[in-house]
């Protein structure tokens, strides 16, 4: 089943009077349970695509379908609700709420979603990412790799259909990067988690089921 599908997706920004075409007609789809990597040179529209697929932003034209539903023109409240329930995000850095402990960070989306067993679930998720012993630490007391693992645990809080990660290892050393990517593989294989991940690293991209190559706002067919 197609969990993400886009048709002729375009997004342009106005830089002063110059139109920057960040995406210039992207047609693609991601299947339920797939682990997809997005690669391509800097500025080719990878993040822009992920933001649109994650309903953080709206396209200039074209359509986005999530699980077959047209979500292109939803209002901001409905989009927020979709993000809360169906989408998990991992950004490159500073994803966490500094004021909240590790456990509270993971609990928070569940509280927002009015789940009741958020304490047990957040402990479970933190065990899953190997941080069961850091529940009450603050993000600032963790290493970059550990912070990204907390972010992954948080992104899974509401059992999202889709996990979107924009250069999740971009800020990490090789060892931590491998840990993160192995965690993704585990989530994908054991929990059939759909993952779309942007990366610059061919090794990391190579660990995905499929790679989408972006160039100048479109997908390259190789």
């Amino acid at each position: 089943m197609e969990i993400i599908k886009t048709s002729n997706l375009k997004k342009s920004y106005m830089l002063g009077k110059v139109e920057v075409k960040a995406l210039n007609g992207v047609d693609t789809s991601v299947e339920q349970g797939e682990f997809v990597a997005i690669m391509g040179p800097s500025g080719c529209g990878k993040s822009t695509f992920l933001n649109l697929a994650g309903m953080l932003d709206t396209p200039t034209s074209g359509e986005i379908y999530l699980e077959g539903n047209d979500v292109t023109n939803m209002n901001s409240n409905t989009r927020a609700e979709y993000r809360l329930k169906y989408i998990g995000f991992v950004f490159q850095f500073f994803n966490l709420f500094n004021e909240l402990t590790v456990m509270e960070n993971v609990m928070f989306p569940m509280m927002l979603n009015k789940l009741s067993d958020y304490k047990d679930r957040s402990k479970e998720l933190l065990n899953l990412v190997g941080l069961g012993d850091r529940l009450h630490h603050l993000p600032s007391e963790l290493s970059g790799g550990q912070q990204q693992r907390v972010t992954i645990a948080r992104s899974l809080a509401n059992n999202p259909k889709i996990l979107l990660a924009d250069e999740p290892t971009g800020n990490l050393d090789t060892k931590s990067s491998i840990e993160i990517i192995e965690l993704f593989r585990k989530l994908n294989q054991e929990r059939e988690q759909t993952i779309v991940m942007v990366t610059h690293s061919p090794e990391i991209g190579g660990m995905a089921d499929r790679i989408l190559h972006f160039r100048d706002g479109t997908i390259e067919n190789i």
């Binding site: 901001s76 927020a80 993000r83 809360l84 966490l96 928070f108 948080r154």
Partner: peptide, 12 residues
Amino acid sequence: QIGILKAIGMKD
């Protein structure tokens, strides 16, 4: 942080 709050699904 406010951006993240909204990204994870907090409404305006």
